[in-house]
Nucleic acid binder design. Structure first.
Lengths: 241, 241
DNA sequence: ACCTCTCCTTGATTTGCGTCAACCTGCCAA
DNA sequence: TTGGCAGGTTGACGCAAATCAAGGAGAGGT
């Protein structure tokens, strides 16, 4: 998996290319996707873009009349505050749709940057809405409703919890996401750096690092390279309760 | 304003009644509402409910095929975690729509409780979607998109800021909401208790109280009863930057 | 080979805020 | 009148996590 990404990183194209995966719709949609996501991903107009690691998909304030479906890879969304400090607002991985917050204003609310080589499908809103598909809006509504619910959930993880609880809840939430998308929930790649995690959770890097080592010492998790393995779900879940 | 609420508090009806405001649509919609809100509020089926202070509008997990538009008053949404602790996820005031998070799952994601005597219009989703109105979904989409954006904003206020910044940002965000709804941005009622604010912001009550006194000592704000007055916007805004 | 840069880790020290405790006020009921 | 209760304020103290500091490992460039 790492190797695939690394070799792909060496390609430097940023312009839209024909996506080999997307020529086959059946492969395009990961197994286990929830129905709504499938339906929206199916609307993918077969113009997937390949983005290199650390490429900007869109910038804060940029006029934006599309959303992006993540076919592979992962992105982080962040704002830059008045002091120039980056604040990550969300991570998105395979199966996610990015840019929903921009729908109302017509301009992007955050920067969106790939954390690794990624493939995104641009979904033009005009097409989505104007086309024959009457159910897309309902699907989008469902998607956003779920996103709002997730937002509250993340919020709960942030407010009134210890640093350890935040990190554990974070790892478990990714695990859940992976599982929902038909991937292993006990072993997955963590595409983001400790610095990114710390930023996202409102902690210092050092704190995140210390918690990772503590969890490893307790044999609850393992990390090799960027692969995270969860050894004991029940123990972890009891920490966040 | 307080008097009106107090007298209304003495009424103990919880069942739907004819809303005197709603019989006049023009009064029903507060001046200054953003267009989307107006359009959705107009769909209000003229069956506003009067809720007493501290009434439950809906409960977590409850089957829910409606959203609620707040005509007057205010509510708090909260979850109860496994330890029985209440965690407030959002406050909503006049002009807001509550229950959007429940749209996908069909059951309420949080409890919703009035903080004062309030009038809410129930908007049945079946009606909204089945009816002639083709634009409602788009409007709802816009609304949810904006809500998502707000969610991120609140998140930014919570992560990586001092207790003072959280409180100041909180006060300013309410000020903005009031202003958007045609009310005074420099003087408004704070319907929630210090305990609620602390819970919402992830702080201790004592901390919130100390910050209020500090801000008062610096002449930045004033509080009499539950009326909050903002004396110096620029000074406050510089604190959160 | 060497340097630089990013990412991660660990230790020592400091501090912001939570916790505990006490007290005041206003409201309601007996 | 008294007592109970909820909400708010203030002070003293302790701790969890930020900050400061240093060093190691790996990747990439010259």
């Amino acid at each position: 998996m790492n190797q695939i990404n690394n070799s792909a990183d060496e390609m430097t194209m940023r312009t839209p290319i024909q996506c080999s995966q997307c020529s086959m719709q059946s492969i395009c949609v990961p197994a286990g996707l929830v129905p709504t996501d499938v339906e929206i991903l199916d609307k993918c107009s077969r113009e997937p873009h390949l983005f290199n690691k650390r490429n900007i998909v869109f910038s804060e304030g940029q006029k934006l009349n599309s959303v992006f479906a993540i076919k592979s890879g992962s992105v982080k969304c962040y704002t830059i505050d008045s002091n120039g400090k980056q604040q990550i607002t969300s991570f998105h991985m395979v199966g996610d749709i990015v840019g929903l917050e921009s729908l109302a204003s017509g301009s992007a609310a955050t920067y969106c940057e790939t954390m690794e080589t990624s493939m995104l499908c641009e979904l033009k809103l005009s097409k989505l809405f104007a086309q024959e598909l009457p159910k897309v809006e309902s699907n989008l509504l469902q998607l956003m409703s779920r996103r709002l619910a997730n937002c509250s959930k993340h919020y709960l993880n942030i407010v009134n919890t210890s640093a350890e609880q935040k990190v554990v809840a974070f790892l478990l939430s990714i695990s859940t996401h992976m599982h929902q998308h038909g991937l292993s929930r006990s072993e997955y790649r963590l595409p983001m750096t400790r610095t990114d995690i710390a930023n996202y959770l409102g902690l210092a890097v050092e704190t995140v690092s210390r918690i990772f080592t503590a969890l490893k010492e307790q044999q609850l998790i393992n990390t090799e390279q960027s692969i995270l393995t969860i050894n004991d779900f029940t123990a972890l879940e009891s920490r966040v309760a």
